[in-house]
Amino acid sequence: MLDNLDLLTLAPVLNVQLLLDGLFIGGIFVLAAYGLALVWGVMNVKNLAQGEYVIMGGYFAWHLGTYGIHPILSLPLVFAIMFAFGWVVYLLVIKWVISRDLFTSLLATFGIALIVQQGLNLAYGPEVRTANSGFGTNVLFGGLVTIADIKIVSFGLCILLAASVIVFMKTSRMGQAIRATAQDARAAKIMGIDTERVYAFTYSLNAAICGAAGVLVSMIWVIQPFYGVPHSIRAFVIVTAAGLGNIPGVIVAGLGLGVAEQYSGFVLGAEFQQATALILLVLVLIWRQIQLAQHRQVVQ
């Protein structure tokens, strides 16, 4: 572990590599986390199938790739397919969950996650896949730092996607309806907003955002039917840390988590990489609880 820290001080440019890798990956985490914050905040559904939607999007991109469609071009298509899929899941399951107990949505979406995982496994087999973007790689600092072009492109797409969703939420009628429903569903209903439709739209939008994130994952990383769980956990870490409705917080936490994972993988060893997200999750929860306890004392 100390050797690894030494290595960082001896060759400081490695920090650049770790930081960039972390940020590029973190951008994708932000997308999935933003989707989660949306469904959690608007309809109080804790979607444990978040990571599975990501992987599902990735597989669709890979699948379209086998027909010769470039993964980037398949992005809008996957977005649309996942939106429709989200709508179907909403009608079949989520619709009945919204008004229910908090635990219900966790377990119900966990059930969905299992079905999606195994469905993908049956459809595409358990091999690890990666969609080929055919882009080159930039070499910096005499080969010590390499940045694949696709990572830069995917980061750009992340920003574009996130920005358009934010603009959509701010300006469009549906976006306004969603925000109104999040603030007070009853009042929104009284004002003539079809909250049913708002919920369906929100859930589908989340599935679509995750699917788009999945397309990026399939290009810059690897996908496999059972790789969804870490993505779900990350989304929960980020949203729990940032708090609902705090978009800048989600962005910072997402990018930060990406970087933290890279550094822990480097310094502590890759076997700690996944433990990092989990330990951060537990720490964030403890921290929140301390905050809460203080709040309670004030009330008392």
Partner: peptide, 14 residues
Amino acid sequence: KMPSDLSDISATLT
């Protein structure tokens, strides 16, 4: 060692 789901070893490769 690799992480348990074997999905990312880029830090090690660095």
